[in-house]
Amino acid sequence: MDKIPILRMGQFLLVTIQVDLYDRLALDLEADLVKMVSKTGARGILIDISAVSIVDSFMGRIIGNIGVMSKLLDAETVVVGMQPAVAITLVELGLPLKGVYTALNVEKGMDLLKNKIQLDEEEEIGPDDDNSNDLTE
């Protein structure tokens, strides 16, 4: 049985989708990821879809679900590496991909996640942190 591997790296979970997802595989990934977030207390999920050539409304919904579900568990989701043709198709299809952040590549996605989490922590600690000027709008 196929399975999409989830890698743990510090407070983050990394997923690279290398195959064309059929429905069961996508649903399994959704379930596995949410379980993993809850088990590891991860603060961020990075999903690399640079090898995915087709995202239809079902796939879009799964990605959105992952975002919303992990948000409930206090983790942010960022989707990276979307192909231009996929982005154009999603816009035409009318699929906004809500609930997740997007970034160009893995590196930028990691930066984004770190930023988001740091922001959260600062809010908890208070704004008198030294690094706060990096994070102003």
Binding site: M82, P84, L90, V91, T102
Partner: peptide
């Protein structure tokens, strides 16, 4: 608007 949305989906 479509162009902007597509750019954002890419993460820019």
């Amino acid at each position: 608007l479509k162009t902007v949305s597509a750019t954002r989906l890419m993460g820019a």
